[in-house]
Design a protein around this nucleic acid. Sequence first.
DNA 1: TTGTGTTTGTACTCACTTTCACAAGCTCAT
DNA 2: ATGAGCTTGTGAAAGTGAGTACAAACACAA
Lengths: 206, 206
Amino acid sequence: MMKYRRIPEETIRRMPRYLRAFSTLGGHGRGFLSSRQLADYLHLNPPQIRKDLSYFGDFGTRGVGYPVSQTAEQIRKILKLDVSQKAVLIGAGRLGTAIASYPGFAIFGFNIAAIFDNAPAKIGKKIAGLTIQDTARLAAIRSGDVHLAILAIPGEAAQTCADTLVQAGVRGILNLSPCWLRVPKRVKIVSIDLAMEMGTLPYYIK
Amino acid sequence: MMKYRRIPEETIRRMPRYLRAFSTLGGHGRGFLSSRQLADYLHLNPPQIRKDLSYFGDFGTRGVGYPVSQTAEQIRKILKLDVSQKAVLIGAGRLGTAIASYPGFAIFGFNIAAIFDNAPAKIGKKIAGLTIQDTARLAAIRSGDVHLAILAIPGEAAQTCADTLVQAGVRGILNLSPCWLRVPKRVKIVSIDLAMEMGTLPYYIK
DNA sequence: TTGTGTTTGTACTCACTTTCACAAGCTCAT
DNA sequence: ATGAGCTTGTGAAAGTGAGTACAAACACAA
Ligand SMILES: NC(=O)c1ccc[n+]([C@@H]2O[C@H](COP(=O)([O-])OP(=O)(O)OC[C@H]3O[C@@H](n4cnc5c(N)ncnc54)[C@H](O)[C@@H]3O)[C@@H](O)[C@H]2O)c1
Ligand SMILES: NC(=O)c1ccc[n+]([C@@H]2O[C@H](COP(=O)([O-])OP(=O)(O)OC[C@H]3O[C@@H](n4cnc5c(N)ncnc54)[C@H](O)[C@@H]3O)[C@@H](O)[C@H]2O)c1
């Protein structure tokens, strides 16, 4: 039972999937889900799922499966999503506004605590119950326990803004602008370039 | 000069990156970019880039680098982005509206040709110069040469809608809803679940 | 023409990831 | 209590991708 192996990066990347599957398939019920059922839903192979979960402990019961609510709670603990994670949203443009009013972040424990923009016309306005604040006062978030940020500003401003966020104590950034950010190693970036992701689609059309 | 090797999936996934880099770094100029310069910008290793590009031909010149406009055009050809690719957008909600008016898809040759929704209150309204059409009439796109779709509707409706799209001749789908679509093998899906992607961030916060 | 400096293209090696196969362990009917 | 039927957890094998090192090729100066 040597569980001191290194946990693969790809396993970490799949953990939120499992959480999503347990939340969706399990409903609010307290039943069990087998690696087979999970695999069918997530389009993965059962042994992959079993191995991934087993890196963190023996969550399942042989002959039965994984207990829904218990395993979900375990994954939340592993990903540190068991406590509400405050995030700031930078950029109250088209994409930022959509994100601000999106309830889907709550399932993962994310809570948008503040919205910033640098356009005078937008500062002071309210979206999703939050008043848009001036980016110039971004440093003030240092006092609160905000460690996450969502970047929804133009690419040209993204690096400068990321620098400020890191200065303000942010440790993780979801970057939606089409550029590659340079940050200290302790800061984790997840970049999503929607247009670019779509760029592979025509290749596969025969 | 045996170039009959299998092209790795990961290489395909990186090709749009290279296109983005050539577009951004190269500007409209007609200079050269070395694998080193590209790597610095994209946060990759130079040999990785050279190997990826060499799968498709000898685009570079030793001692010089890759010719910007020529290589960009080659990559567009490889990804079939050299011709304008029509796409339909399904869902004129918060996210759909943001996407409809986003100019960033054009760089990759994407052109949103029509917008659909099933809400009576939205059908007939205009966004981004396009009149929102009734999803019930989605099958009509068969006549036009539309092979791509962007799905920005709730997860519960996504699978049914995907089925209709496939019936209507769509061969590639950018799915933004938090669910895993089941489609025939000939259809390519790129799914992006923003909330889920963010789910790994807290894990890395020490 | 020759030498120097630079950069590509790629064989080889190494690392990571996924899949396979099966023993161990649980449930439940008899 | 026992056996039949599942499902987990995991070592070993297979598959895939990344990194290293270097020869080949080009530009340009002398
Ligand atoms: N809209 C989309 O569908 C979409 C799709 C993919 C990617 N993106 C990317 O997301 C980002 C935002 O896109 P958008 O469409 O919402 O753009 P937008 O122009 O509608 O909004 C950008 C917002 O950022 C604000 N801003 C600009 N510079 C700022 C700064 N230095 N500090 C704070 N705020 C600043 C602007 O005032 C504006 O409100 C862009 O990088 C874009 O490329 C958008
Ligand atoms: N808003 C965000 O920031 C965000 C972020 C991540 C993911 N998403 C996902 O993107 C999708 C859309 O999100 P949203 O925030 O724009 O939702 P929304 O409710 O604002 O918009 C959904 C739109 O889809 C339409 N619709 C519903 N069922 C339909 C059907 N069967 N056919 C055609 N149209 C239909 C609705 O009329 C509405 O206009 C959802 O799956 C959501 O989970 C949104």
